[in-house]
Design a protein around this nucleic acid. Structure first.
Length: 575
RNA sequence: GCCCCCGUAGCUCAGUGGAUAGAGCAUUGGAUUCCUAAUCCAUGUGCGCAAGUUCGAUUCUUGCCGGGGGCACCA
């Protein structure tokens, strides 16, 4: 729709220039908006206003010059009007050019939805570029909690939206399974095990406090028997660690699957430290490389990365003076390795509490010869407040009393949980109310949107029962144009306009990496549908009109399904 | 002290370099012989403060104020 009008405006502007009414033939990129008020047309452009400085003319004068050729030039004006696109053009306010479109112009959208079907709303702006989205990446030292859920939903859906917008997306989970943390996990289990055997222990605060550690201690003793107790402590801890980490990781995988999240790759941090028989590890190679390029230097017995040169506030340690690498060392190697795998673009989803880390990862990427500002994005997801009926739930990790993602999915379901997580911009903290997520009312957005889908299914069922259509799944046929032509109600045109905006919302969501754009879109569409439903009956005595309306609501149903699909939320036939 | 996010209606939040800033909740009052009332309709003296850029700023810049988070040879 907008493409067609862009061509008309540019042609008219060129014509105006040829006739000496405009000074310059440099035209800006045409921008459109949907006017908020009736009387301002269907689509509006600020073309005249943003041309003002180039043309050195008052915006309204420019608008007049351009519109005179839209209206009068035979090769532009009469054709477009005859072709059933534009009804009239008006200049308004400071210089807006408002287009009033013919109903027929909107009717063609319904056909598009039918023809493109599951692909409606997709685009190729990604040009098949390879992009990796890395998210969750929680340490396998405990179950996922409510905060991880938000990162999981944001990462997963951002990936879905990018794929729909034409990117070649890979979803990855980085497993922090290198020695140190896993060792702490093993030690935690081992100490609990000794405690259960009646030994006096001193449980350090830096060990994992949760009850699940005690469970592991019981389980491993049952499985391995007393032989474990006779082993060297370091060996026993190592065995505890391996056992617990394996089980926790499997639990994380299961919980994510139940939440509707599937990764293309699980990437092990340990693999960056493992050396092949004929050489050194990736971490070592990267450090050596950077050292030879003087990006990494030695000071006070430690190795430092010159991140300050790349915009960080100070340099960071890569290898401590005791010879142990820092967490940062493997992150450098990992981010270099991502690009070496062929991704032109990398997106990391982190909790907002890690924002201080952004600059140093940018530094890694730039030092590695890539361009962090163009090829790397970090999505910082703000905190989640878990509520129950408006009151805060206790979720302190320290005390080990946190609500897990598994608990949430079990209580409110995958659909409600995902939708709730995506209902706000990740730039804002989120109040997640468990009672609200379970509520079956319009307080709860997921039901509001899903109900549209179910309601339309129900209408189609009835239409089939009454013999109006032969089957619920209407297939496109050119004869349907005649029926659709009956759609003349204000609410019908409004619904179609909203359907026409799905694609650009997907693009905006992909470009800004903000999945909640789709949430807002779906709410707007749902609102318009419910409103229409209450004002007009779809199935009436007028068969022609009824079939036209059935096409309209089917189109709505398809777009709702596509939108919910991006969110990984089901579109039920019945509720 | 420095860095990041937020500050929009009573509450929770959308939104935009432009024409009269929106939705849900809450409040009050309505709608169902009829395709699901898990719905709809009506009801609103609000962009934290101050400068700057601009033809035009709630939007961009800077400085303040307020809330949250982060600033290790930790992970």
């Amino acid at each position: 729709m907008k493409d067609a009008i862009t061509k008309i405006v540019l042609a008219a502007a060129a014509k105006a220039f040829d006739n000496g009414l405009l000074i310059s033939d440099e035209f800006p990129k045409i921008e459109f908006e949907e006017p908020k008020y009736e009387g301002q047309g269907d689509i509006s452009t600020n073309f005249a206003m943003i041309s003002a400085s180039v043309q050195k003319m008052a915006p309204r004068k420019i608008a007049e010059a351009v519109t005179s050729f839209i209206e009068t030039a035979p090769e532009i004006g009469s054709d477009t009007i005859k072709s059933g696109l534009i009804k009239k053009v008006e200049i308004a306010g400071p210089g807006f050019i408002n287009f009033f479109l013919c109903d027929e112009a909107w009717h063609s959208i319904i056909k598009r939805v039918f023809i493109e079907d599951k692909g409606y709303g997709s685009s190729d702006i990604g040009e098949k570029r390879k992009v990796q989205v890395e998210f969750v990446s929680a340490n396998p030292t405990g179950p996922l909690h409510v905060g991880h859920g938000r990162g999981a939903a944001v990462g997963d859906v951002t990936g879905n939206i990018l794929a729909f917008a034409g990117f070649d997306v890979q979803k990855e989970y980085y497993i922090n399974d290198s020695g140190r943390q896993i060792n702490t996990l093993g030690k935690s289990v081992w100490l609990r095990l000794l405690e259960q055997e009646g030994k006096e222990i001193d449980f350090p605060t830096n060990c994992y406090q949760g009850d699940y550690i005690k469970e592991f201690a019981k389980e491993i003793l049952l499985e391995k028997g007393n032989g474990l107790l006779k082993k060297e402590e370091s060996e026993a801890i190592s065995e505890c660690a391996k056992y617990a980490a394996g089980h926790i990781l499997q639990g994380i995988k299961d919980d994510l699957k139940d939440f509707g999240v599937e990764f293309d790759q699980w990437f092990s941090e340990q693999s960056l430290f493992d050396s092949p028989a004929d050489g050194s590890s990736l971490v070592q190679k990267t450090i050596d490389d950077f050292q030879s390029k003087e990006i990494v230097y030695e000071k006070d017995g430690a190795l430092w990365f010159n991140t300050e040169k790349y915009g960080d506030e100070k340099d960071r340690v890569v290898v401590r003076s005791n010879g142990v690498t820092t967490y940062f060392a493997s992150d450098i190697a990992y981010h270099i390795e991502k690009f070496d795998r062929g991704f032109n673009r990398v997106i990391d989803v982190w909790g907002a509490d890690h924002h201080g880390y952004v600059q140093r990862i940018n530094a890694c990427i730039d030092a590695g010869g890539r361009n962090s500002s163009e090829q790397f994005d970090v999505i910082l997801v703000q905190l989640v407040n878990l509520l129950r009926g408006g009151k805060p739930c206790a979720m302190s990790t320290r005390a080990g009393e946190f609500v897990t993602l598994k608990d949430i999915v079990a209580e409110v379901g995958k659909d409600a949980a995902r939708f709730m997580y995506l209902s706000r911009s990740y730039d804002s903290k989120l109040d997640f109310d468990l009672e609200l997520a379970k509520e079956k009312s319009n307080n709860n957005p997921v039901f509001y949107v899903q109900y549209v889908h179910a309601r339309i299914s129900s209408i189609l069922q009835k239409a089939e029962d009454e013999g109006l259509i032969s089957k619920q799944n209407i297939e496109w046929h050119e004869d349907l144009n005649t029926f659709i032509n009956n759609l003349r109600e204000k609410e019908e045109i409004k619904l179609i306009k909203i359907l026409s905006l799905f694609g650009e919302n997907v693009e905006k969501s992909a470009q800004t990496l903000h999945p909640h754009v789709i949430f807002t879109y779906l709410m707007t569409l749902a609102q318009a549908f419910h409103s229409y439903y209450n004002k007009h009956k779809v199935i009436t005595d007028n068969k022609e009109l009824s079939i036209g309306r059935l096409c309209l609501v089917t189109a709505v149903k398809k777009v709702i399904r596509n939108g919910l699909g991006l969110f990984g939320v089901s579109a039920p036939e019945r509720m």
